[in-house]
Each structure stands twice: as structure tokens, then as C-alpha cells.
Amino acid sequence: MKTLRVPRSPKVVTGLAIVGFFIVLTVVGPWIAPDNPSSTAYPALLGPSAHHWLGTTSLGQDIFSQLLVGARATMVVAFVAGLVATLLSMTVGIAAGYLGGLPDEGLSMLSNVFLAIPGLPLLIVIDAYLPVNSRSNAFVIGLIISLTGWAWGARVLRAQTMSLRNRDFVEAARIIGEKRYRIMFSEIAPNLLPVLASSFLFTILYSVGAYVTLAYIGLTSTSVWNWGTMLYWAQSNNAPLSNEWYWFVPPGICIALVGTGLALVNFGIDEFINPRLRASGLSSKQRKERGLARRTRLGLTPVSVTRAPTPRSLQPNPGVAE
């Protein structure tokens, strides 16, 4: 197996930094929050100040504290959903791709059905019927979100598995009589690691969006602080139209940043999976030194202006007679 080396492009580094920052926030957020996010001890609708970095809500709650505390619920739900969905798509995708035939027909049909049903309306319908106490449970919500978010990954993994199933190492495992589930999960799955990682990040991205959206329309418990409920309260108190931007902009930006970070990391994985997406191998500094254009146009192979130094591999050895 190839070693997993994600290209260190600026995009990936930025993405990792953003994601890392929010993971730290998930862990420490509720501890470092200056106030109880539900406490209504302060005057309403204070603008940002040294005391309240992001001001207060119409109930006098500290918005910055809500943002810090809210990070955990948002990220935990997204993580649970991402994990469950990835496990689901791995099982369905690899089984469909490896077993082929009737099981493949059935499993592909299943994932295609889930792909075709629009996710959010289904989520809303399920959620609308949930008892209120389940709506505040991160795991229940995460589970439901994962139910609407696994199908895409399954489809991608199925295709990848099909391309692997006739490889030598799988064939060898089959011949020595390994059990099917062992071939699927200890021979094939490790080779799908980049695809799995990409699918995991994608489902987390989807889950953040789905969870925040459910919270925003008031379908999760409004007493659990997450970025979506913050937006819910801001919206229901007409914060956007009253120009209380400090109330509704920060959670939105946080959501977008998490998403951007995840997507940037995914770029790196995409480049790992599809070598054509990688940079051409000529760094911009070297191009400049050799008088080459910033990018190579198809059908116009660059001609270096300055004479190329003899490549190291061709440097004359001492014994050569001139």
C-alpha cells in the first residue's frame, strides 16, 4: 500500500489549520466561555464591547459565550453523523462493489433511492415527528442526519471497490480462502482510505449544514446552544432587519469557516486520489529563473530561454575524456 502523504499545498495547510482550530474550540469552548450562555444577567442588545466581545442578545445573554459553547454541540453532532454515515457508506459501498450481482443491485438501488430523495425535507419530516426530548439528544439527531447523508459516499466507494476487486492482492486473498467480510474490510477497505477520508469530510460538511439548518428552523431543542439555535433566536427576534449584525453574523461565519476548512482539506485528498489535479511540478520560482511562463499551455511546450544547467543526473563523471 502506498503511504498516505497529503500534498502540502497552501490550500491544505490552511484547511488543516482551520479545522484544527475548531476542533480545539469544540473541546475547550464551554470551559473558556466567559459567561453562562443562557444567563440573562446583562442589558439587552448591547453592541460589541470589551466586556461583551460580540454584544448581547435581546434577552441580555452574552453572544460570545453562546458562540464558544455552541461550537461543541455543532461539531459533536456533525462528527457523530459523519462517522455513522461513513460507516454506513463503507459497508454498503464495499459490499455492493465486491459482491456484485444481486446484492449489488439491491444495495445500489438502496443508495440511489436515498440519493434521489431530497435530504432536508426528509429530515424535517422525521424530525417533526420526534418527541421533544429526543430533539435535544445529539446522538439521535446525528443518527438521523447520517441516514440522509450516507448514500453519496456509498456510490463512490462502490465504484472504487469494483476497480479493486480484481487486483492481485484481492485475488490472492480469495484463493487462500479468506472470509468474504475479511477480504472486504481488511484487504479492500485500507486501500480505499483516501476515498473514505474524503467521504468522511464530505459528510461532516453536509452534517454541519443539516444540523444548523434544523436548529435554525427550530426543529432541534432550542435550549441546546449551537450555532443554528443562535441564528434561530437572532432570526425570531428580527436581528437581521434591525441591523444587529453582531448577533447573527458570527455564527454564520463560523459555520462557513468550518465548511471551508473541511473543503480545503478535501482538495488535498482529491489531488492525492487524482494525480492529474496535482500541480505540474514546476515551481513558480524555478519557472521565473528559467524564463518560463507561469503556466504551461497545452500545445505550447515551453522552451527555456536560459541554457539549462546539466541536470545532476547527467553531470560528467571524473573519468570522462573530453
Partner: peptide
């Protein structure tokens, strides 16, 4: 573009 993709529609 990635940032715009990550912003929730409603936001």
C-alpha cells in the same frame, strides 16, 4: 468559491 459553498444558503 469554497467559502461561498460552505455558507448555509439561508445565512
Amino acid at each position: 468559491a469554497t467559502f461561498f459553498q460552505a455558507v448555509p444558503y439561508f445565512f
